[in-house]
């Protein structure tokens, strides 16, 4: 399992490096100098390749560090959590903070094992409390979205 993990890691780093360097080909140059905005991306890409090779080498020699087992056993919660963040980001400007946050709280509280009373309580109270602290006290311009007519 560990060897497999390290092969994937090394390959991913090398792939990232290739993507960076490939993209950097089109960058313009500074007049009179032999390099420009592409210099650092290329250095970094080289570094990523070397690190990737190093990790592969470690795997081969069996000197890779042991690690705690963080293999996901619950894919559905993992994907749901990503979904909550993505959905919140998309609906925030339209639904406004209160509604978006309430929805996010419902799903997240259920996801982390909260019972319905806790979930409902959190979804009702927390958006107002957070809105009060961030919007009213700390002056963060949280969006109102469809609730604009009710805004304060």
């Amino acid at each position: 399992m560990n060897i497999n993990r390290d092969v994937v890691t090394g390959a991913a780093l090398i792939a990232l490096a290739i993507a960076m360097a490939w993209n950097a080909r089109g960058f313009p140059r500074i007049p009179v100098m032999a390099y420009g905005p592409d210099l650092f991306p290329n250095i970094i890409a080289t570094g990523l390749v070397l690190s990737g090779l190093g990790i592969l080498l470690e795997a081969r020699r069996g000197t890779a560090p042991e690690q705690e087992d963080t293999r996901p056993t619950a894919w559905i919660p993992f994907v749901t959590l990503i979904g909550i963040v993505a959905a919140f980001t998309i609906i925030l400007p339209w639904l406004g903070f209160h509604l978006s946050a309430a929805l996010a709280f419902v799903v997240a509280a259920r996801l982390f094992g909260g019972g319905w009373p806790v979930t409902i309580g959190l979804a009702v109270v927390a958006p107002f409390a957070l809105h009060y602290v961030f919007y009213s006290i700390l002056r963060v311009a949280l969006p109102w979205g469809v609730l604009t007519p009710l805004a304060w």
Binding site: A108, G114, L122, A126, F134, L142
Partner: peptide, 17 residues
């Protein structure tokens, strides 16, 4: 079950702020 959703929401508001 309360803390984790709060951390999540604080993360998102913090970034937005």
């Amino acid at each position: 079950s309360v803390l984790m959703p709060l951390v999540l929401m604080l993360s998102m508001i913090g970034g937005y702020a």
